[in-house]
Amino acid sequence: MGYDLSITRDPIWTGRPAHSLTLEEWFNVIQRDNELCFALSSEPRKYPSCDAEWLAHPKPEEAPHGTFFVWGGGDVICKYPDEHQMIKMVRISRKLNAIVIGDNGERYDLDKTGSWSSMTKAPLLRLRDRSLMALAAIPAKNSQRPWQPPKHRTVSCSTSGILV
């Protein structure tokens, strides 16, 4: 299990209505940013790349898991980012009108001068809480009431006399 940072516009994290990042938007960022290039897949005919490699990392040999940014499911993700990668992610997020969020809901940003500012400790919602909110928002079939978990009930087994 790793620690990821994500560039996202997910309304649950941002608190504002928006659509997910599209592949076209991500490709535009890669094409217009001279520090990024498309990362080639090991099997490009079978699995074309949606990922980018950051060519201008100041110390690429010290990047724990390479200098890659991976697009997936409407977010751009970086595994085990170092401080330089975090800064680059915030700069990319601003181009996409998005935010950078950690696995535990903490938000990352830069100060007014563009220097690294420690993470904003605003754990919005943990993944479990996000999932519960998403489930609660799904309306029940043929009902105007919001979804609620089923109530537990006691059932007796007449053959053994054991209550379940």
Rank of each mutant, 00 (worst) to 15 (best):
residue 37 C to A: 15
residue 121 K to E: 13
residue 106 E to A: 07
residue 51 D to T: 01
residue 80 Y to N: 07
residue 130 R to N: 03
residue 29 V to L: 01
residue 108 Y to V: 13
residue 52 A to G: 01
residue 86 M to H: 00
residue 104 N to C: 12
residue 88 K to V: 04
residue 59 K to A: 05
residue 81 P to R: 12
residue 116 W to K: 04
residue 128 R to N: 09
residue 17 P to N: 12
residue 96 L to W: 09
residue 83 E to H: 06
residue 1 M to P: 13
residue 64 P to T: 11
residue 72 G to W: 11
residue 55 L to P: 10
residue 124 L to N: 07
residue 23 L to P: 00
residue 87 I to N: 02
residue 12 I to W: 02
residue 55 L to V: 13
residue 57 H to F: 08
residue 105 G to E: 10
residue 24 E to Y: 04
residue 36 L to P: 00
residue 67 T to S: 12
residue 32 R to C: 05
residue 79 K to C: 14
residue 105 G to F: 07
residue 110 L to F: 09
residue 2 G to Y: 08
residue 84 H to M: 05
residue 122 A to D: 14
residue 14 T to C: 11
residue 111 D to F: 00
residue 113 T to Q: 11
residue 29 V to C: 08
residue 110 L to Y: 05
residue 131 S to M: 12
residue 136 A to K: 15
residue 26 W to P: 03
residue 46 K to R: 14
residue 134 A to D: 08
residue 66 G to V: 03
residue 88 K to M: 15
residue 127 L to T: 13
residue 74 G to Q: 04
residue 65 H to F: 12
residue 21 L to E: 11
residue 113 T to G: 01
residue 5 L to E: 01
residue 135 L to N: 11
residue 133 M to Q: 13
residue 123 P to A: 11
residue 111 D to C: 06
residue 18 A to T: 00
residue 136 A to R: 15
residue 78 C to W: 03
residue 89 M to S: 09
residue 91 R to S: 07
residue 21 L to V: 11
residue 128 R to I: 12
residue 96 L to V: 11
residue 95 K to D: 15
residue 117 S to D: 05
residue 98 A to P: 00
residue 127 L to C: 05
residue 8 T to A: 08
residue 97 N to A: 09
residue 110 L to Q: 05
residue 50 C to I: 04
residue 43 E to H: 10
residue 85 Q to S: 15
residue 60 P to R: 05
residue 3 Y to I: 13
residue 127 L to G: 02
residue 43 E to Y: 11
residue 55 L to E: 12
residue 116 W to M: 08
residue 33 D to Y: 00
residue 30 I to M: 02
residue 35 E to H: 12
residue 135 L to G: 00
residue 107 R to Q: 14
residue 39 A to N: 04
residue 30 I to Y: 04
residue 97 N to F: 02
residue 33 D to L: 04
residue 52 A to E: 02
residue 136 A to E: 10
residue 2 G to A: 15
residue 66 G to Q: 04
residue 94 R to A: 12
residue 68 F to H: 11
residue 89 M to T: 00
residue 47 Y to P: 00
residue 78 C to D: 03
residue 15 G to W: 07
residue 27 F to H: 13
residue 83 E to C: 02
residue 43 E to K: 13
residue 115 S to W: 06
residue 133 M to T: 00
residue 92 I to K: 01
residue 131 S to W: 09
residue 94 R to F: 01
residue 35 E to V: 02
residue 121 K to H: 05
residue 62 E to M: 06
residue 21 L to K: 03
residue 117 S to T: 03
residue 9 R to L: 02
residue 115 S to F: 10
residue 74 G to D: 01
residue 43 E to V: 06
residue 113 T to L: 09
residue 85 Q to L: 15
residue 30 I to S: 03
residue 73 G to P: 01
residue 98 A to L: 10
residue 7 I to Y: 00
residue 59 K to T: 08
residue 10 D to H: 12
residue 70 V to G: 02
residue 63 A to I: 06
residue 54 W to M: 04
residue 100 V to G: 01
residue 99 I to V: 15
residue 22 T to A: 00
residue 43 E to F: 12
residue 109 D to S: 14
residue 72 G to K: 12
residue 91 R to C: 06
residue 17 P to F: 02
residue 25 E to F: 04
residue 17 P to V: 01
residue 29 V to N: 05
residue 22 T to E: 01
residue 32 R to E: 14
residue 67 T to L: 09
residue 94 R to Y: 03
residue 5 L to Y: 08
residue 30 I to G: 08
residue 86 M to Q: 15
residue 136 A to D: 13
residue 117 S to C: 11
